[in-house]
Nucleic acid binder design. Structure first.
Lengths: 221, 221
DNA sequence: AACTCGCCGTTGCTTTTGCAACACCTAAGT
DNA sequence: ACTTAGGTGTTGCAAAAGCAACGGCGAGTT
């Protein structure tokens, strides 16, 4: 389950952007770092769990989810490789996670006790860059959540679907793109009923707004 | 409009927590800092505006809002004194704000060109504390957005209302509490129709789930 | 090959809820 | 004192969307 990490894999990660392998080694030498593997459908962290590590997706896909008492699942965010999560433990409000994290595919996650790094003052180049990176990442995670609420704030299902597709198109930089969700998961992401989603997608296609085939979508006009 | 800032006012702010007045002065001496006053209903920042300052609510109430083409207003978050906003400019994804900020009451906002502070390495105590603080604040803002999505992900209006009231009760630490929204604003915060909200609140009262009088609510049971 | 399981589309039904219109109230300004 | 403007509760109606059930399909397993 636990795996030694090769520093090589980390150079492309947003958290370590701008740091060379030597600098990454310097940072990691001061803390206990750990990579955990998860199988598809494993829970990485449960809502209510105590969190004491910053988590980084090395590869695979992780979903931030919230399940209610009835087992009704809502996907809050989809996290690809390089994503940083469980950052709420860096805040003062919560020491427990309010959401769950879930391996949507086989995944490797780097667990990093970041508190130590934070509190240790240092004016090394590596440390400064790392601090800048974490601030940027947190700000970006923020933006992503705001974008998500821009989907959810739409009053109609069609509005949500369209807002979502526009975001994916903007991400892809093209009117035609592939979405990372199955229909079931998309329904959970939009917090809508799956059958209602299928129905509304069909209507939008019939009206010539969009075209799609499996997970490939296109916004028409 | 622009006002000189007295350092005294900042000692209580989360961003400067743990810093004494001398240290705050040291930090501020390196950048141009500015306090702007806004009248109730003024826009502080418009969606699409270029952002180059971190903003801190000194006093008053600021709303993060998103308006669509039809003027339909959605309140994403309500920001009281001490709140930090417009932080997405610290990220790499956007240099423009994707949402608007709006003075819900007469307000004073501190504008702080934080990028300069970030990039200047320093191992002074003050600098280290400031970095820790900003990380904590960003993480907390994250948690708040996640909590907001926990309201919006509910499929029924009653679910949203109840989730919201539970959060307010948790914030207040009591079953009885005062909400900061008018009915109209609450509808915009929950992204629901105002009349439907009134109707559902009345039903929940009739069924004995909750009691309320103006803006004072109580969760029963 | 038979079977299971999970995902997908379809459809009928019912509830929810958005929308529009109206009347009332309060506060602020003239 | 009058007027205006904005917030609030109410209600009828129509549209939207959740729910449940079913059948088909494809992948993986025995």
């Amino acid at each position: 389950m636990d795996v030694r990490i090769s520093v090589q894999n980390l150079t492309g990660m947003p958290l370590f952007e701008g740091l060379d392998t030597e600098e990454i080694g310097e940072v990691l030498s001061r803390v206990n770092v750990l990579v955990k593997r998860f199988r598809k459908s494993d829970y990485i962290l449960l809502a209510g769990d105590c969190v004491d590590n910053l988590c980084i997706v090395i590869n695979g896909t992780v979903q931030m989810i919230k399940e209610d008492i009835w087992g009704d699942k809502s996907i809050i965010a989809n996290l690809g490789s390089g994503s940083v999560f469980a950052e709420s433990y860096l805040g003062r409000r919560h020491d427990r996670s309010i959401v769950s994290y879930f391996a949507a595919s086989d995944s490797e996650v780097l667990m990093l006790p970041f508190g130590r790094i934070l509190e240790t003052p240092s004016n090394s180049k590596a440390h400064t860059k790392l601090m800048c990176n974490i601030v940027s990442i947190l700000a970006d995670n923020n933006s992503k959540l705001i974008e998500k609420t821009e989907i959810l704030c739409k009053k109609t299902l069609r509005g949500k679907i369209y807002a979502y597709l526009e975001q994916e198109a903007a991400n892809a930089g093209a009117k035609r793109f592939i979405i990372p969700f199955s229909r079931t998961d998309l329904a959970n992401y939009l917090d809508a009923d799956r059958s209602a989603l299928t129905r509304e997608l069909a209507r939008m296609r019939d009206e010539g707004m969009i075209a799609f085939e499996k997970n490939t979508f296109e916004i028409l006009d």
